[in-house]
Computed example of a mutant assay.
Amino acid sequence: MLVRVMCNVVVPAVLVVLTLLTPPARAMFGIPDFLEFGGCVNATLKPNFDPVKYTGLWFDIESVPNDYQHTKNCVTQNYTWTGKEMIVATRGLTAVGKKVRQGAIMRQSTSSPDPAFMTVFAEGVPEVPYQIVASDYRTYSCVYSCLERFGFRAEFAWVFSRKPTLPDNTIKHCHEVFTAMGVDPTKMVNITQGEECPYYEKIEETLAENEQYLLKILGPYVPTTTTPAPTHLDQSIVEMSEEEKTLQDLKGKMESGFSTLCTDSQQKETNGASSEDQEDDPNSSTHPVTSFPLLPFLLLPFLIY
């Protein structure tokens, strides 16, 4: 009973107070800036989404800042569809310019039959939604993700491109899609891409390879079974053999969902009787997704890569 009162009354009250604090005070208590009052919007998903067409290389153009995401600049995502799930290999630079690699697995959400609604599984954090709200597969993608608890939400949005740049009118289109859903696109910030990034030395070759791959999957014949992402793209961006082995091992260990302190305690209370009976570089590193500080984890977790 005491734990239930803590979960349903005390914790929400504490959260209300903490979210009203100034940014420095919020940081001191481990409250991320993206934690807001309110619930998640009902996202309008891309009709007839085809995960095979979504595979290949994407560049992050804009996103809502996330303190728990290692990659900050020069961020690329490589998607490989296995026929049952999407393997995501992410590369980029930290805020201090250190090379970093991260990985995740996406599967169709159990809460929706729509293939445009996926769930991200990554080591060390709870599962989170990944909703494709608009994409032409060849040039851009607009993605939404949100978690809610105790009347608060952690809301994220991304604009992706098949190239390091994206025309302003295309970015504006994503903003309009988000606005129509009730999501504020002004929360997103630009992600550094281009000449400052490690991949830039071979960018022309990389884009040409990726374009050939897109012609293959977006042509008249589109395979409906396993279609791996291009295997000969610039290794500094796409090839992640070491990481993908790790991801394959991760699949067997992954648990769907997570239990918070509150839900665990409630289950014990209800069922108490039955329960008794990147490259080898000295400056580069590979990181699992960072775990949450205790307080945000109890309320609204995330990540994304």
Rank of each mutant, 00 (worst) to 15 (best):
K216D: 14
G83P: 06
F37W: 12
A25T: 05
L250E: 08
T286R: 12
P126L: 03
Y221W: 08
A273I: 10
Q193M: 03
T179H: 02
T170L: 12
P51M: 06
V10P: 04
S275H: 14
F258V: 01
Q77C: 02
K187E: 06
K245D: 07
T226F: 14
K216R: 14
I61W: 08
P301N: 15
G272V: 01
H173A: 08
E123C: 11
L294W: 15
T19M: 07
N210I: 02
V238P: 00
I171E: 07
G92W: 01
A43L: 01
V5E: 10
S256M: 05
T246Q: 13
A180D: 03
L166P: 07
P115Y: 00
A180Y: 00
Y200I: 02
K245Y: 08
S275T: 08
L207E: 10
Y68D: 01
S274I: 15
H287M: 13
A157E: 03
N73V: 05
L233T: 06
P32R: 12
N210W: 02
F302C: 09
L57K: 01
I191R: 03
I171V: 14
I171F: 05
L298E: 15
Y130S: 01
G272L: 07
S161M: 11
I87N: 12
L45V: 05
E276T: 12
S135N: 00
T260N: 14
Q193T: 12
L147A: 08
P223G: 04
A25P: 01
I203E: 14
Q212G: 02
Y140R: 07
S141K: 00
C262N: 04
D281E: 10
D249K: 08
Y221T: 12
L57A: 02
F178G: 03
L295A: 10
P47Q: 03
V75P: 04
R162M: 05
T90C: 04
S274F: 10
V238K: 04
F29Y: 12
I132Y: 02
Y305M: 13
E85Q: 15
E127N: 15
W58K: 11
G219S: 13
P51R: 08
K84S: 11
C40R: 02
E239M: 10
Q77D: 14
T170E: 08
A208P: 04
F302V: 12
L299H: 12
G257S: 05
S285Q: 10
F152Y: 11
N42K: 04
S285H: 12
L215I: 09
Y140C: 08
A95E: 09
S291M: 05
T90S: 13
P113H: 13
T80I: 01
V125P: 01
